[in-house]
Computed example of a mutant assay.
Amino acid sequence: MNDLLAALLLGIIEGITEFLPISSTGHLLIAERWLGHRSDLFNVAIQAGAILAVVLIYWKRLWGMLVAFAGHDAPSPYDPLGITATPAQSRDYAFKLLAAFAVTAAGGLLVKQLGWELPDTVRPIAWALIIGAFWMVIAEQLAARRAAREGERTAISWTTALLVGVAQVVAGVFPGTSRSAATIFVALLAGTTSRAAATEFAFVVGIPTMFAATGYELLSLARHGGIGEEDWASLGVAFVASAVTAFVSVKWLLRYIQSHRFTAFAIYRLLFGIALLLLLPANA
């Protein structure tokens, strides 16, 4: 297959799966069996392309946080649904995002120092998909019961923010877990019973996380002289494809969760995980 076409397909797969709770890393590892293995920089960079889509979708909220830090007193747009926030609320949200990112950064650096390598065989990915499917259903049921008792909660607590940071590290260590699924459902279990609020925090915290990961890989390549070895044309094609498809995917998901639960994604994960166990050899 033409290398640019393969890169395009990988970018599309990343854009669709990065924010749907079905594991982009797991899908990419499987897709690379047929489309060719890619560098760590390629995989992280196309994730950054998907994150760029979130920046475009949430630019009003991000701008509101910057304005709040600058001391502006006017309420600012809060999210894509048009809710507004006071400067104090925007600053509080920003500090919690930074706290979650700090936990992820510290945990990620520790994992790197320990020399942890991502599992890249089928069996652990398949089991992560299957276990995650049951985890999603249970977490959403518990959140729904709590919401019925106490009312819907949209606030992100400090505990939730820190646990989301830990969830990002866990998702990075175990492909198939899904960063979006881990963070959304940790937020739901930690007390943010609103699907929309939990999803939004999970998406926005990915902005500094994935951009930092891309920068880290670039610096690592530069130190070891690997920049010139990267196929920048393929990476560019995949980056753009990932950004465009992620934009469409996130817009769709934000509308979908207003009136639907995540059950359909759990079913997909379960079926996909079982199919991987049955159809591919364990050491593939």
Rank of each mutant, 00 (worst) to 15 (best):
K60L: 02
V137Q: 07
D92V: 09
Q113W: 04
M136K: 09
L66H: 08
D73V: 06
Y58S: 08
I131A: 12
A85G: 03
I125R: 03
F69S: 06
I125E: 01
S90W: 00
W116Y: 14
R61P: 07
W59R: 15
Q113H: 07
A133M: 12
A74N: 14
P119W: 00
V67G: 00
I125K: 01
V122C: 01
F101R: 10
G132D: 08
A68N: 07
A102T: 12
I83S: 13
Y93V: 10
V111P: 07
A94F: 09
A70I: 09
P80L: 05
R61K: 15
F101H: 10
K112E: 15
L81Y: 08
V67K: 10
A102E: 04
S90T: 05
V111N: 02
T104L: 11
E117C: 09
K60P: 05
V111A: 02
A133Y: 01
P87L: 09
I130M: 10
R91N: 03
L118D: 05
E140F: 01
W59T: 13
A50K: 03
D73E: 14
K96A: 02
L66S: 09
A50V: 11
Q89I: 04
M65T: 06
F69V: 15
L98E: 02
A100E: 07
I57C: 00
I138A: 06
W135N: 04
Q89D: 11
I131S: 03
L114N: 06
A100W: 01
P124F: 02
A144Q: 15
P77G: 08
L97E: 01
A88F: 01
G132N: 12
Y93M: 13
I125W: 00
P75D: 09
L110E: 05
W63G: 15
A144L: 14
R91C: 01
W116V: 15
A94D: 05
R61W: 00
A94N: 10
M136C: 11
L52W: 03
L56Q: 10
